[in-house]
Amino acid sequence: MGKRTAVKNAAKADDGINPRQPCPCGSGKRYKACHGAAGGPGDVIIARPFEGLAAECELVALREFVPSATVRLPLLAGDREVTLATVLPMAAAALVRADESAFVGLQVQTRSGDISRDLARAAQWVLAAEVGEALPVVGPDNGENPGRLQDLLDPAAELAPEVHKDFGWWLPSDTEPSGEVALSLERANAAIMPTERLDAPGVRAAYWVDAGSKAHLRWVRPEPEEELLAGLARLSVRGQLDLGEGTRYVGSFRAHGLVVPVWDLDRELHPREWNEPAELLGARLADALATLADEPLTDAERRSREGLRGRQITLR
C-alpha cells in the first residue's frame, strides 16, 4: 500500500464517512470542509434544510410565500403544545403569549445557513420559556446542540396549515389591540396578499394567491429538479401544462432545494374552483413522470425542458 493510500484511508472519519466525500448534511461541500471540520460546520448553507420530512413542501411554502398561516408543530417530546407560524410580531423567532400559547416563527429577521437548525433552537427555547417571553432572534449555539428540526419531529408527520386572512391570531381572542400594537397589526394586515391553500386529493403545498392584477397557483413540488422539469416538458409538448381555459404556466422558482412551478389563473374564479383542475393536473404530471424511465424525452420535449429551465429564478 502506498503512502498516499495509507494516509487517505487513515483520514476517514470515526463515523465511517470519507472526508473527501460530499457531506451528508446536503451542503454540497466535502465532509472534511463541513461537519467533519474541526469545530463543526460553522455557518454552512444547507441547500435543502427540510429534506427527509414529509412536511418538507409545506414548510418551504410557509417559509417563502404564505403570508399568514399557523399549524401545530408535531414535536416528539415536550409538555407544551407549540404552533408553527409563518411570521410573528416583529418577526420574532418564538414567543409565548399571555394566554400561554407558544409559537415558533418561520419568517424571521435573521437566520444562519441552516433554517432547520434555527427552528430546532427556537422550538427548544419556547418549550422552556415563561409566559410573556419572546425570542427576537435565534442566537449562536453557545455550546448547546439542539439538533435540527428532523431530530424533533416524526419524519412521516404531514402538515395541513390553516391560512388566515389577517394577523388577528397574534393576540389572544379576548384581547383588543391598541396603540402601537394596533398600528403594527394594521400595517401587517394591509401587506397581506389574499392566499388560500388548495385542498384536493393528491394536491399538497399548492396555494392560490391573489397578487392584485393576477391570481396565481404556486405549487411546491417534492421531485428532484431534473425529473420534474422533464415531466413538465412532456406535459407542455402534449398541450397539457395548464389548469384549463384562461390559465398558463409562467415559470418556476427554486426555494430550499425544491422547485415551485407557478401558473397564471383567472382572477374571477373562487379559489375553491381550482381544486379539481389542480387535482387533474397533478394526475397528468404523475403519469408523465412515471413514463420517464422507459420513454426518454423526444427532441421536442428536450427543447421544451430547456425553455422551462430558462424561466426559473432562485430565491436566496
Rank of each mutant, 00 (worst) to 15 (best):
A11E: 14
R302K: 10
A215R: 09
E158R: 09
R204D: 15
A122R: 01
G2C: 13
R303A: 05
P155D: 12
W208H: 12
L73C: 07
D166S: 04
D154E: 05
G147S: 06
E180D: 14
G257Y: 00
E56G: 02
P136M: 02
E227G: 09
V203I: 13
Q312A: 14
T175G: 00
G143H: 10
L241R: 03
H270E: 15
A123F: 08
D166M: 03
E227F: 04
N142V: 05
A290G: 00
C25E: 08
R30Q: 15
G239E: 12
E245G: 08
E176S: 10
V87W: 00
F103V: 03
D99K: 03
A300W: 03
I17K: 08
S27G: 13
R302A: 12
M193T: 09
L292V: 02
V7A: 15
A300H: 02
L59S: 07
D154H: 06
G179C: 07
K165F: 02
P172V: 05
D199C: 00
E273W: 07
A122S: 02
I192F: 01
A230Q: 07
T5L: 11
G251D: 13
V181Y: 02
L265Q: 09
P19Q: 08
S184H: 10
R63C: 12
P89D: 01
T298M: 04
G143Y: 05
R20P: 00
V262P: 10
N9E: 15
D299Q: 11
A69Y: 05
L285P: 07
I46Y: 02
L232C: 06
Y249D: 04
L308E: 00
G147L: 10
P261Q: 09
D99F: 11
F50T: 10
W274L: 07
L229V: 04
V108H: 08
G202C: 12
A288K: 08
L281N: 00
N18H: 08
P277K: 02
V163R: 13
L235R: 10
P296I: 06
I313V: 15
T247S: 09
L159Q: 03
T314M: 01
